[in-house]
Design a protein around this nucleic acid. Structure first.
Lengths: 339, 339
DNA sequence: CTTCGCATTGACATCGATGTCGGAGTTGGC
DNA sequence: GCCAACTCCGACATCGATGTCAATGCGAAG
């Protein structure tokens, strides 16, 4: 438990000034290769690690990136976190995770406090809070770089990273149509989410292009939760002429539909095909396993970190409005079958 | 995007010295109530928030607490995080989440770098890494306060927080026995986990106390994963004289058993009772819903934060070896029924 | 009325790094 | 052979807070 090694210790041991050590640590130009190597050797020898606080204080940069969630208890959040963490480490950043409760009375104040206290180098916003304008305004106003995941709504100066939800939903719908289904129900997510809207649109357009009518009663509301999926399933499956397939806008709701079907002894996929979206871990724990769309959330998060860690993106002012689209994958499993 | 308000600004506006403002912000003694109130008013007016980096640098305290995970993608991790975050906010701390890959070649080095760079005020360790001695040694050596969750192994100077896994497993086993089951199988977790061992012991003792023999083949290995639960289910249920109940050491594995049973058209709970442990979110998404033991992970995490935030616990040296036990709850749902 | 003690306050150094700037040494073009 | 330009490096101030310590003011004790 000796006091940590400081830059002065290194400087003394290497016979140079602290400033030179600093230059070496930051890979700046104008250091003779011989000196650089020598310093690096001493650094390795003493196992010197610059103090992030001191660095931040003097350079007014930060080595902390914020990851803001509304619901950190979802598999989605976990996946994003994993991807972000791995990439952070690569860039020498660390991840500060905060729960943002949109309905909490003091949430904005808390965020404000966090921002000023930690001077975050950037923030990653996930749905649904990425579309909360009070929050994005606050971040903009402080000039903090922001990347939004799973939302293609640019609006503010934030970068956005997403998959092509619209096309993915079309693909999935086409999958069902190709299997011979014509009576297809859809369980919506929270319609104010950008992605949820795109998924619904993809479904509708696929149906329209195939010349299949959409029955009003078969478009059910939902909020991405298991419970709402079950309720939707109950509504859809309660009559005798239920559809032959249900497309839920995410896996949790699909699971709800699955349970609702089990409740009624409707065999899946024999009497009913159920498909989801996201490829959440639970989609493999269901019975039968869910056909779904793999949304590579960890990859989305890595890309977000890459953007935030990019020095050219750190400058305040006019950040380029970037929009990155990441490819998705169709995952065929056993919950869908021929009509 | 004006520069942030500093302590000097407040001092000037209030007509006092920065030091006095500092005293007020830290609730130190020796400030006249009138002055204190006045300063607080100015602080509120200017919306001043002390810079955490500067604070840490000068006081060599830290406002960051580390939360270390092996597998951040589990529901368990999410729950812990939520509890920890809420409590951190209450104490004015922030949570830095790091994934610790025990098998990664440079993991210890990474951790070491993080520790020195961030000077964490404390670290929360979750299973299984809470029992990784190389890691705990590293933390001890740096004098960083540690709290371990879900492990009652004290060993080092760390505090431990856990439920009574042994008694909970006995309760659950008694529940099955009371329902009339005598042929009961058990799916183990990773035996090196402290909690997993306790759960097995609880099961065995409950059986022994009831005078019921344990069949060797019905104690199956597992690693807490869904997949391993399914494999265990396959092994247990493949013969015609399968047990009438299966107790899995966590919910994910119980779900695996459930799927294995569905695969064989064994009706649950009619022909087979399946119970789990943890009350993970998925336990409610299963069909039928799982009977389980609620382990209040968020509460465990809050307690951990309370301990770490306790100033008396911050001092290096001889920390009291604390061990806190938190109550669990039996949750009866529909996956278990009379034999 | 003096003196001691305590509560209150501020001046100044400090934490560990980086920004600025200027000086010394080198190169190169004329 | 001289001046410009450039490379390399260190002295010093600075970031925004807190620790230390001395100065001040006040009431109570002598």
């Amino acid at each position: 438990m000796m006091p940590p090694v400081t830059i002065k210790d290194v400087a003394r041991a290497a016979g140079v000034s602290p400033k030179t050590v600093s230059r070496v640590m930051n890979a700046e130009a104008h250091v003779r290769p011989a000196v650089r190597d020598h310093v690096l050797r001493v650094v390795a020898e003493l196992d010197y690690r610059p103090n992030a606080y001191a660095r931040s204080l003097s350079s007014s940069r930060s080595y902390l990136i914020g990851l803001f969630f509304d619901d950190p208890a979802s598999g989605y959040a976990a996946e994003v976190q994993l991807g972000a963490m791995a990439r952070c480490r690569h860039h020498g950043y660390h991840l500060v995770v905060e729960r943002i409760d949109r309905d909490g009375p003091e949430t904005l104040d808390e965020v404000s406090r966090t921002l000023q206290a930690l001077q975050l180098a950037g923030v990653i916003l996930t749905p649904p809070i990425c579309d909360w304008s009070d929050l994005t305004d606050l971040l903009d106003q402080r000039g903090i770089p922001v990347v939004k995941l799973n939302s293609s709504r640019t609006g503010s100066s934030a970068a956005v990273i997403h998959i092509d939800d619209y096309q993915a939903a079309r693909d999935m719908t086409d999958h069902l149509i190709t299997l011979g289904h014509r009576d297809i129900a859809f369980v919506q997510g929270i319609v104010s989410h950008d992605a949820a809207g795109k998924r619904l649109a993809g479904f509708c357009d696929a149906m329209r292009c195939a010349g299949i009518g959409i029955r009003e009663a078969w478009i059910q509301a939902g909020d991405f939760s298991f419970r709402s999926g079950m309720a939707a399933g109950d509504a859809i499956l309660s009559t005798n002429d239920h559809p032959s397939a249900v497309f839920a806008a995410n896996d949790e709701m699909a699971l709800g539909v699955l349970v609702s079907a089990a409740h009624r002894n409707i065999a899946v996929p024999k009497a009913l095909s159920v498909v989801g979206f996201d490829d959440a871990p639970i989609s493999r724990m269901a019975w039968p396993q869910l056909t779904t769309i793999r949304q590579p959330n960890a990859v989305l998060a890595s890309v977000a970190i890459d953007i935030l860690a990019d020095p050219s993106y750190q400058q305040a002012g006019d950040r380029p409005a970037r929009s990155v689209q990441v490819p998705y994958t169709f995952i065929g499993r056993s919950s869908s079958g021929p009509a």
